[in-house]
Nucleic acid binder design. Structure first.
Lengths: 190, 190, 190, 190
DNA sequence: GATGAATGAGTCTTCATTCAT
DNA sequence: AATGAATGAAGACTCATTCAT
């Protein structure tokens, strides 16, 4: 029931693909236009500027992913299971759409385009989960921001490692259990 | 016996400072020259190109840091202590020279400048330590590359978090013990 | 008996408003379309090109104004009165529709769009009046082109001055008598 | 004793020539560079931007001319002579360097580039002269801003007229006396 | 009458780099 | 060692205009 393949969508995909491979600054509007098969000027009918293009594509997918994770963990009670299911989702995502995952991984660099006071959703979600687990007595009191950062690092750095494996990137799903356990042990502390 | 503050050194420092703040692509030779107080052309007396400049400055400091870590851990026997001392060194480094640390953090992006077959030293060191610990029976057998990646992520993501704290970046040294324990528990597994 | 607010008219008004404020070159078809609330393409239903749009709108109003002045002065016999009534009309026009007056003031810049051999009507009218006054012996013989230019300058430069008064443009009608007298004295010579 | 023909000066001259003929907006950096015989990029070594280029060239010559007029009139006592000598200087200037005069004539359009609170010097000078003449009792009290505007219009519109005479622009010096007398009579009033 | 999408040429500007001095 | 001037390629973005619908 879709209309003729939406140009805006094609532009977004091309941007994700190129930026995942080279980084925001190293990809020009010319590159994106070329990949889509239109003129540079055509891009500007769909996105007001390069910054807007990158930012809109980023937030759209980032928020979608954050929402999914939020939904997922809610169907579990205990922290260990919440972590397991979230980590698994990350791994699945990575294996299914590596371009997009990598693109989202550039969050730090893209966030300089963010409006002031923008707060990334993922860390917040993680911190809320941890706070709740502490309240329930599942884990002992701790600095949830630091714990959250350590957990994210565990997963993301591993993703980075898998990404740059030669000759072919590694799959992450097989590592899901290992990663989940590591996250759990980080939270559990001594 | 040092000569008057070496220009090459001043260029390197300026590059580190600017790149730490903005990223490689967003810093131009003009920016660097301006920060040093010389002409762009002068930079080419000291470095053959922008890429060479970035790469040489990066590897110099990266290798120096890797060497230091290697030396440090050798004066300890058991993994737990090795990790503790290495993590502490990272934290100290971060607190003492945030610019440089941040610059080195961009490794992934800078490594596209690397010669083929270049292999970053830090992960290798970490993997060797883990391999040895397994051999000694300190920890059970496991995929040392993944374990290493998880450990690095734990520390680096926390550094990233500390870096972007507003209004002032946070100190990392106070977190050293927490981080070291997390790394240890990651290695220890269940 | 007017139709629903004619689009062509709305386009013309928007063009006048924008061009009066910014000049021909600094106003784009996009700007005009935006101000009217239609697509750029829609403009081309009403005007063949930007140049045609500007030129047609200009000549229409310019000629209308020239005609009015011509009619006006004919109901007076002597130069002094002719000048008085024409100057007053200019002032009234300025106060009533500053946008349009300013737009017409850009005549010099718009006339590069003119067809070859185009001759602006206003100077001609003025020169005819002066020629007649000389014939009648009201004023002594003189270069009517120069005298005409001086008179026009007197009024137009004053208009310019009133236009750019901050914070609000000045009214011109109160200056009508002063201006008319100046014109008269210019013609009268010593 | 001059060094090899200064590029900055050549750029300024080319800009004056082109802008006098076509207006600021219709002249591109490419045009200017082409006229000078250098790359566009070379222009940016001498002027930070197109706006800066136009503005600096404009103010430099405008102020120089204003200074000259100021000096000139000071060597005369009475208004009539002051006006005569200033008008004559305008005419001489026009005949000697029509490009530059025309360029300066675009003042109104260039002044949108002006820093806030910029006040053009020429009207001020004229107003001071008029104020002094009133004080001395040479002319009766009047709105010096309006009188000034009328005088300027007299000269400038005539210049415009001379400029666009076909096939060759007219000389202005022969008109100096006529113009000076017109200015005087404007000030003198009835 | 009007739209949405597209284009190709052109805008100003910045880039890394070179070279004569 | 360093400079000032220059370059050619590329950057993001805008322009007037066209055309299928």
């Amino acid at each position: 029931m879709k209309q003729p393949p939406n140009t805006r969508e094609k532009i977004a995909r091309a941007a994700i693909h190129l930026i995942a491979a080279r980084g925001v600054d190293a990809v020009s509007m010319r590159d994106i236009a070329g990949a889509v098969g239109v003129t540079e000027a055509a891009l500007y009918r769909h996105f007001a500027s390069k910054n807007v293009l990158v930012w809109e594509v980023f937030t759209f997918h980032y928020n979608a992913f954050a929402d999914k994770l939020a939904k997922l963990h809610e169907s579990h009670r205990i922290l260990r299971e919440k972590l397991a299911v979230m980590v698994r989702e990350c791994c699945t995502f990575f294996d299914k759409d590596r371009d997009l995952f990598t693109f989202l991984l550039l969050a730090q660099h893209i966030q300089r385009l963010a409006p002031k006071n923008y707060k990334a959703a993922l860390p917040v979600i993680l911190q809320e989960i941890l706070a709740a687990a502490i309240k329930r007595g599942e884990i002992r009191a701790q600095d949830i921001e630091i714990t959250g950062a350590m957990m994210m690092g565990t997963v993301l750095q591993t993703a980075l490692y898998c990404l740059y494996q030669k000759p072919r990137p590694k799959k992450m799903v097989p590592l899901a259990e290992t990663l989940a356990r590591a996250c759990w042990r980080i939270a559990k502390g001594e």
